[in-house]
Computed example of a mutant assay.
Amino acid sequence: MEYTVMLPAAGSGRRMGAGENKLFLPLGGLPILIRTLGVFERDPACRQIILAVRSDERGRIRGMLSGAGITKVTAMPDGGQERQDSVHACVRAFMEAGGQDDSVVMVHDAARPFISPKVIGELAATAAEHGAAIAAVRAKDTVKQVRDGLVQSTPDREELWLVQTPQAFRAGLLAEAESRAEADGFLGTDESMLVERSGHPVRIVESTYDNVKMTTKEDLAIGEVLLKRLEEEKE
């Protein structure tokens, strides 16, 4: 199942303490961004990549893409202050370029370079059939709902999932949910939340715990270990 992937890449790297966009930091000798894009560059089902970027970083990113042989990036709209703004910019770029409502589009964190191609394929197929699907893993730990330092409740762990990306949708469904959120002044934490509030059901595709987001320096250390393991498996 063919798809287009959209990546918000206009972050600051504040939580990483990097002093620059964390996506430029090296992971196994390559920038995190290039590691992530490489997954989709190698996937025959990926038709194109749309990157939301900061205008002052566009030239640098173009150079990185050229140097790494990344050829599927077709648009780099300006990213916004919030992740939701950046994703909306990608959706607009897709639709303005002739994207169809029933096309499958995915939104993926540019800082998740270890997503499984198998999971990507399952997401695309599920979104094509049902309209919306997200990658997630089962919660390993007991979770407490807390208010003012006091435990309020303990949700059933069997019903709890930790959400990742990619999140996959029919393009028209996501575009409508994004536009409605913008009109309502609603800011969600992920695209699934916007689709959920529109009343459309969202399906879960079980992912892997390796699909770590490179957010802190500790995550980078974990990434190096995962990368070494993947390289050893290829030998």
Rank of each mutant, 00 (worst) to 15 (best):
E158L: 04
P166K: 05
T189Q: 14
V163Y: 05
R170H: 04
G149H: 02
L162F: 12
D210L: 14
R147P: 00
R180Y: 07
M214I: 12
M214P: 00
V202I: 10
P155A: 05
A181Y: 00
E158R: 10
I204T: 09
A175Q: 09
D190K: 00
S198T: 14
E191S: 06
D210A: 15
R197C: 09
D184C: 07
L174R: 00
R203D: 00
T165F: 06
F169T: 06
F186C: 07
A183Y: 01
D156R: 02
F186T: 00
Q167M: 15
S192V: 00
Q164D: 04
A183N: 02
F186R: 11
V205S: 02
Q164S: 08
K217W: 06
M193R: 11
E196V: 13
D148K: 11
V212L: 13
E182Q: 11
T154Q: 11
I204A: 07
R180T: 08
A168D: 14
Q152V: 15
E182L: 09
D210Y: 14
P201E: 02
R170Q: 12
S192M: 11
G185N: 06
T165Y: 06
S207G: 08
D184P: 01
V195K: 05
K213S: 15
D190M: 06
P155H: 03
A168V: 08
R147S: 09
R147T: 10
L187W: 08
H200D: 03
N211F: 08
S192Q: 10
T165S: 11
L162M: 12
V163I: 13
S207M: 08
L194G: 05
H200A: 10
A168C: 05
T215V: 12
T216N: 10
Y209L: 13
L162G: 01
E206R: 08
G172N: 04
E176M: 00
Q164N: 10
R197P: 03
D210V: 11
A183M: 09
R180H: 12
Q152C: 13
Q152N: 11
Y209F: 15
S198M: 15
R147Q: 10
L173I: 12
E218F: 08
A168W: 07
R147F: 06
F186A: 07
R197E: 11
Q167S: 15
A183I: 05
Q152K: 14
E196Y: 14
M214T: 01
H200C: 04
L194T: 06
G172Y: 01
D156N: 09
P166I: 01
D210E: 15
L150K: 11
R180D: 13
D156Q: 01
F186I: 04
L187K: 07
